[in-house]
Design a protein around this nucleic acid. Structure first.
Length: 98
DNA sequence: GCTTTGACTCTCG
DNA sequence: TCGAGAGCCAAAG
């Protein structure tokens, strides 16, 4: 199982209404390849299963999204996550730490 | 096998 | 609060 496959497995564990960060994911995999995690999402073949839109930056910002940041924000809000100016409002509340 | 690139993070001014 | 610079790892060319 390659690095990114492990990332996708973790992404599938994120429940609705919750988000996580690239840092946390990397830590869970026992590495510090935050950027590699981003790459994994970019190449994510498990489209809706692996909730890459529930992964944000460590400071609560949504970061960038290749398919359009607006779309993802809409999805997050639909799950009860408030987003304002590309930033998670109640970040500590919705943060999923596995 | 070295170089480039990226949906990142941390520190400093 | 915000932007710039440096550091980090894995995948693709």
């Amino acid at each position: 199982m390659s690095f990114q496959e492990k990332v996708w497995e973790l992404l599938k564990q994120i429940p609705e209404g919750k988000v996580t960060t690239y840092k946390i994911i990397a830590e869970k995999l026992g590495t510090k390849a935050y950027r590699a995690v981003g790459n994994a999402c970019h190449n994510n073949p498990y489209a809706p299963e692996a909730a890459c839109h529930r992964v944000v930056n460590s400071n609560g910002k949504t970061g960038g999204f290749r398919t359009g940041i607006k779309e993802k924000i809409g999805l997050l809000e639909n799950e009860g996550i408030e987003v304002e100016n590309g930033r998670i409002k109640n970040f500590d509340k919705v943060l999923f730490r596995f």
